[in-house]
Amino acid sequence: MDERLFINLIPGNTFLDKLQGKTKVRIFLICIVALIATWDMRVILPFAVLSVVGLVSLKPNWKKMWGVFAFVIAMNLFNLFLLYIITPDYGLNVCGASTVLFKFTDFYVVTAETLWYFLVRFTKLMGSFIVSLTFIQCITPSEMAAGLNSIGVPYKICTIFSLAFRYIPDITKDFNNIKISMQARGMELDPKKTSLWERLKQNVIILVPLIITSFDRVGNIANAMDLRGYGKGKTRTYYSEHEETSNDKKMKYFYTFLLIVTIAVIVLRIVMPGEFEVWTPWI
């Protein structure tokens, strides 16, 4: 479980790490909105490539990363498989044609448009996954709060985000501690010795103390924050938000450009919606 939760508490030293929280949050939000807003491969592909470049530039620990990638790719492929089972000729709805490549039965046909749609969908979801991953890898919880605050989110909501992210590694730690102490009391969690149903029941047994200890801690954390004067002022400044560097200024032009592109894509989609959702090169 813990390999998959990479929350950084100390900023790293690559290009993206050294940017301001403000810049990171804005670039992330623009990329995510762009990836959500469109089904046009001409827009999705550049953003997906950009996110891959971002991830590579962070020099992440690839050994840790492969497991996550395998899981996400498998899940997305499984989703596509389900989609295919329900509507084999999905491409007809979204691309507006069906060029049959070959048939399993009369219902289960493979069309070029469906395959194209699946490719677009896969790129889109992988793109937004890699953007999220890059974002999590390069940001610390308080930089995230500072960034959200800079785009006008009330600072108490920002605190909710940063505190929640800060708390996730603690959940992992608590979960493992509870699991170990349950095992010490004789609970069998070895997958070879217990059935799946038994293990599910045991996980529920772990959850109850996890939830109770977490909420018992609310009072302590709140008192600590109150003692440090949290929530007294109308606004808040962030210690983690350093001054604008020259790279931040350069990135400002870059994300302004991305913002204009994204707005243009959304406006175009509303003003001149195409007859079909997905742009297909051969139609």
Binding site: L210, G219, I221, D226
Partner: peptide
């Protein structure tokens, strides 16, 4: 919101 509620929401959201 008082501080306690904010912390409660944050921990709830994380869980």
């Amino acid at each position: 919101f008082n501080t306690k509620t904010i912390v409660g929401i944050a921990i709830g959201a994380a869980l």
